[in-house]
Design a protein around this nucleic acid. Sequence first.
DNA 1: GAACGTGTCTATAGCGGTTCAGTCGATTTT
DNA 2: AAAATCGACTGAACCGCTATAGACACGTTC
Lengths: 347, 347
Amino acid sequence: MSSRAHPGGKVTIAEVAQRAGVSKGSVSLAMNDKPGVSAATREKILRVAKELGWLPNQAARSLSSASTQVNNIGLVIARPARMLGLEPFYMEFISGIESVLAERSHSLLLRLVRDVEEEIEVHDGWGRSKQISGSIVVDFTVDDPRVPALRASRLPVVAVGHPDLTGGLPSVWTDDGAAITEAVHYLAALGHRRLARVGGPPSLGHSAIRTEAFVKAVAGLNLEPARIVPTDFSGEQGARATRALLASAQRPTAILYDNDIMAVAGLSVATEMGVAVPTELSLLAWDDSQLCRLTHPPLSAMSHDVFVFGAEVARLLMGIIDHGEAEAGHAAPTPVLVPRGTTARLR
Amino acid sequence: MSSRAHPGGKVTIAEVAQRAGVSKGSVSLAMNDKPGVSAATREKILRVAKELGWLPNQAARSLSSASTQVNNIGLVIARPARMLGLEPFYMEFISGIESVLAERSHSLLLRLVRDVEEEIEVHDGWGRSKQISGSIVVDFTVDDPRVPALRASRLPVVAVGHPDLTGGLPSVWTDDGAAITEAVHYLAALGHRRLARVGGPPSLGHSAIRTEAFVKAVAGLNLEPARIVPTDFSGEQGARATRALLASAQRPTAILYDNDIMAVAGLSVATEMGVAVPTELSLLAWDDSQLCRLTHPPLSAMSHDVFVFGAEVARLLMGIIDHGEAEAGHAAPTPVLVPRGTTARLR
DNA sequence: GAACGTGTCTATAGCGGTTCAGTCGATTTT
DNA sequence: AAAATCGACTGAACCGCTATAGACACGTTC
């Protein structure tokens, strides 16, 4: 194989070296801006490389140098695909992340899995094959098996969840307990004494935290014992839960939902069952996407900026990747009560 | 949880081979389900590999075999991050894609960029470094510069857009022309003679196609010349466009929007300006996410299942990756008119 | 003038896999 | 019984690059 004009075929460092009349080693040095080649030689090499349209093969490079430089951030979500599209939370969260990644020329490697075991597996695979330089982890449970797994891998990680759940991993979280307490106090102030909560799966850490705060706040105010209905966050289950609550003997006069999808569904159910909102029943949503402003009446909600939250998470991760694990994380602003048309004084 | 790790960390094929009492070659064969090892040996090798927690190093693998097997699909979007979270279309589209990828253990590599040049660059980088095994490309313009670039790279690709725009790349598209025509005929049948369209950027191919069909349908029915207002698809611009249309001397009696966000915003504007919907003004949305059912009155829309559409795109791409470029693509079901509360006979 | 730096550049040994020409028994064919 | 066939398995040659020890020419220093 000699200096044939390399038609269309793959160019390698060897060919560049030969054409430039130097060794492969010199080409490598020149391409990586390392000392050891004279300015003249370096320039010549770069010229030839450009001429041949050569770019170093990433695989070969990372094989020999161990240090791969990929610009990908991982995100594994253990929920059904359909939910991603329907839950405004995830989209806003992801777009917040992307807003930070984009300005740093990073991409998001997104994967949906069935369960935590698969999640750990995927994560491990990504780490090993060096497909990501860091990762964002969500939906922590109590004693989450991912915590030890993530500590073991040396991959930079930011956990989304309360420090109680994330076992010392750098975290960003919202103070759900405080928000729930505010919500309960607000409803109590409106005269409600029989509250219910349509929450997420009890296994989910933040759902458990909210439930606990809810029960505590209700007890603290001497309200009637609260009913908690667990769901999978879907509109269907939100509707079903609402239907069950409203059909029960001592139906609640106020319901607090764990996201806005379920609140929207709950509002429809109330209407369909002839329960007047907000005169007979108050509803309070969580997350507060644009959905809440569109219903009739518009939904009162515990509002927080999920886009900014996602961006914050990404920013922390980039910081850790750049400067090592300096920060331990921090809380994001507590959700704020935005009263609209679905909460009112009990008549 | 997993394997007893093993000091030092990095496990290589050599170690697995030694521990299993076979050669590196056999391990490779066993791991890749290739013939040449007995069932017993294969099983033993796999056991040892799992025990050591070994997974083949991607870089090494792709170096030697040229054919890398990464399970990532690329998607580059040249739009601002904020829009991703707000536009139900993208989220549904992405979750549809994920629904197919998940069952095939694939991930989505998602990147937001500023412009087409950057998009080509990113794409090229992904291809070269073998980070993806295929890609989905959206938002085609007329004479899109990505078409030649994509043809040049041998990467499997599915284009989302009408064949007129995608220059022979395998494509999936919706017959927007037919849908627009149906919409116009419907509005005309309700007695509307002064229509307007709030569309996307004219540079965008599918937007241009819709505009052309719109103008043609309007002309074909001898309606008054139609007004077209271009936007960037955002709610703000949708509101502004609607405001301008309604404030004009000869205001239209029906407006057709290019997505549902703008239709929702437009409905608010009409209400705020005291224009009665649907008695004085009919509004027709596009895409039809859950938003359309929440407004008051609920939005009539040209409805199509974006989730299924995304899944279809992903399925075609997986097919091409598996069996080579067999299919040329196909049209997805044409959007269907769903009349709700914002369209009515002109009184 | 011998020993020592110094700055360039070369040769070569890996990195961790895949691939393939062979080796080696056991089984089948002649 | 010898030859041919066959499946299982090995050994070594790559893949394209980086890292590093050494070769070489050219001053310096003592």
